[in-house]
């Protein structure tokens, strides 16, 4: 941000620049400190991934084992399933997170009553603050075999009840639906904000030229917020090797029968820790997640840059 502003105001003296931006810098300071403390300082812990970590010897005193911990994950008989699930789900999430929040943001922007907008916003934002544990018990009241709402409805309609927690075929959809439901509020807000930033005179001009409201969505709104959509997508690609532990572990009640469709990298790490207590292996998988994420972000950004250099993240 500093760099860009410098380009805009090249003639100003250095000192003046600082006083001018002082308030912005101060504003950013708490976040910068937090990121530094929680994201940069612990980075030295990456070294755990290459060691056979023992508590009593500490991080730096433990034995160096090189890539042994990385082999553990890739040699595992679960590796294929885990990687397949993680990548497929995350790909679906990225696509879904592009379509639904944008649609909702456009809906919101077309509501004229301020009060109603606030109401809807709060309603769709609420799930974002619920923990997966709470949600998992809500869903249990839907899916429970004996007393679940869905099975009661099925029985009322004269159909046989479904043992939801042991039928794998429903769960990919359930996971995607709940992911969208929980996260839609946050992204909708971002898109809504950037829609509000669009110059209204463009719409007026379009209307004068006889463009319908519906067409102006596709020809004005979506192209105008394309940058935001691409930015959020690139960021999400960065965490494609990471899975939402709560979603897959809690929502499925950790039901063993569902493991084929609910086992993702993060639940695998958890299981490894529970069985072996080996912190180094989980650290190694964490490093893999981050490295893959970094490479993918750079790659996507590069590809986006080749197609349209204005939409890149950096």
């Amino acid at each position: 941000m500093i760099q860009k502003n410098k380009n805009i105001t090249p003639v100003r003296k250095k000192k003046k620049l600082i006083t001018m931006q002082m308030q912005f810098l101060l504003l950013a300071l708490p976040a910068v400190i937090l990121i530094f403390v929680f994201n940069y300082l612990p980075m030295s812990g990456i070294v755990i991934a290459f060691k056979n970590f023992k508590f009593s010897r500490g991080i730096f005193g433990s034995e160096w084992v090189g890539l042994e911990n990385f082999k553990f994950f890739f040699k595992s008989s679960d590796a294929f399933r885990v990687i397949r699930n993680t990548l497929t789900y995350n790909f679906c999430f990225i696509v879904a997170d592009m379509i639904f929040p944008v649609a909702f943001a456009i809906f919101l922007s077309n509501i004229r009553k301020k009060f109603a907008v606030k109401g809807y916003q709060t309603a769709i934002f609420l799930p974002y603050f619920l923990s997966w544990v709470v949600i998992s018990y809500m869903t249990l009241s839907f899916f429970d075999y004996n007393s679940g709402m869905f099975n009661m409805i099925l029985q009322k309609c004269g159909k046989a009840p479904v043992s939801w927690y042991s039928e794998t075929k429903y769960w990919p959809f359930i996971f995607i639906i709940f992911h969208v439901w929980k996260n839609i509020g946050y992204k909708t807000l971002v898109y809504y904000a950037s829609i509000l930033g669009i110059d209204t005179s463009i719409y007026e001009a379009a209307k004068t030229d006889g463009c319908s409201d519906f067409r102006s969505i596709f020809h004005i709104t979506v192209p105008m917020i394309r940058g935001t959509i691409i930015m959020l997508a690139i960021l999400q690609v960065g965490s494609i090797f990471r899975a939402d532990f709560g979603l897959f572990y809690q929502l499925s009640q950790n039901s063993g029968a569902l493991i084929n469709v609910s086992d993702v990298v993060d639940t695998y790490i958890f299981r490894t820790l529970m069985v072996t207590g080996n912190t180094s292996v989980s650290a190694a998988v964490g490093v893999v997640q981050s490295v893959v994420g970094l490479i993918l972000v750079l790659l996507t950004n590069y590809i986006v840059g080749r197609i349209d250099s204005d939409s890149t993240l950096f």
Binding site: D78, N254, A257
Partner: peptide, 24 residues
């Protein structure tokens, strides 16, 4: 046998609860 134990733990997790509940 850490690798094998982790592998087996997921096999047990996958089947045991179903068997234990006496379904399927």
């Amino acid at each position: 046998i850490a690798l094998e134990a982790t592998n087996c733990a997921s096999v047990v997790q996958e089947y045991y609860s179903t068997l234990e509940a006496g379904i399927g």
